[in-house]
């Protein structure tokens, strides 16, 4: 696999290469390499403290907001290392969107939330409205909010807020969407709807999902990567990993002997 030449069709859209992240006390990620091909959903699973959140945050340089971490290695996005000094993290985050554990809607209207990223680049209002509608449809929220886009976003339910966050990230048309345990704060019904949204989105986007829930990985992912204390233990098609894991640690995690 040579990610440097893999732009265009075929190769991975995003690829972490020899990524090592250290805090003062310990190594959080140790020489981790992983590819994310187009139109796929990769679930990154592992026990808590395995570094999976740090890993997903390193894929769009959000990790740099945590002070005191040193980052080595590279993350190649369509042939370009996003950690190259000439690359502005702001541009990275516009191309590689992110959804967080808890819904983090801004205290304003539904429309303004979805339009947040668009407003920054000053598009005319028709374009913004069109993109907002498209994004809300993709995230499966449109039917629920289309009659009153001016209601406060905080009046939505938790699951709706999380789908609004997904729509907000989609509205700026990234290629890659990072989902950091997006359902951990939601009830089962809301989780189901968010999972359905993910199923639909993986047709068109590269999705990376961090989850501690093996069941969720089984339901939505094409590929599973299992992390344990900063190491990538194994990676492969979802069915292979979950049904016939090669490593003992993976086996233990899947059968619930961790946590």
């Amino acid at each position: 696999m040579n990610a440097l030449t893999s732009s265009g069709n075929g190769g991975p859209v995003l690829s972490a290469q020899h990524l090592t992240i250290q805090s003062k006390q310990k190594k959080i990620l140790d020489d981790l390499s992983l590819d994310f091909p187009a139109a796929s959903l990769t679930a990154v699973v592992g026990p808590s403290g395995c570094g999976k959140t740090t890993f997903i945050r390193s894929l769009n340089r959000m990790v740099e907001l945590t002070p005191g971490l040193s980052i080595r290695g590279s993350v190649i996005y369509l042939g370009q290392d996003i950690y190259d000094p000439s690359v502005n993290p702001v541009m990275v985050r516009r191309r590689i969107g992110m959804v967080f554990q808890r819904p983090t809607v801004f205290p304003t209207t539904v429309f303004e939330n979805a339009a947040f990223g668009l407003r920054l680049v000053h598009e005319d209002i028709e374009t913004i409205e069109k993109s907002v509608e498209e994004a809300l449809q993709r995230s499966g929220l449109w039917e629920e909010v289309k009659d009153d886009l001016d209601r406060p976003a905080l009046s939505l339910s938790g699951g709706q807020q999380q789908r609004l966050c997904i729509a907000r990230a989609l509205a700026i048309k990234p290629r890659v969407l990072l989902l950091d345990e997006p359902t951990s704060a939601l009830d089962p019904a809301a989780t189901q709807r968010v999972e359905a949204t993910m199923q639909r989105l993986k047709e068109d986007f590269v999705l990376v999902l961090v989850t501690h829930n093996v069941g969720q990985a089984a339901r939505v992912s094409d590929k599973v990567a299992f992390l344990h204390s900063g190491h990538l233990i194994e990676v492969g098609p979802t069915a292979d990993i979950l049904e016939r894991p090669r490593e003992a640690l993976t086996q233990q995690f899947i059968t619930g002997r961790f946590q």
């Binding site: 990275v92 985050r93 516009r94 191309r95 992110m98 967080f100 801004f106 947040f116 920054l120 700026i172």
Partner: peptide, 15 residues
């Protein structure tokens, strides 16, 4: 301002 909101803004590619 909650950290979550800062990160949400920055995560959307805002400066």
């Amino acid at each position: 301002v909650p950290r979550d909101l800062w990160e949400a803004g920055l995560g959307l590619g805002a400066t």
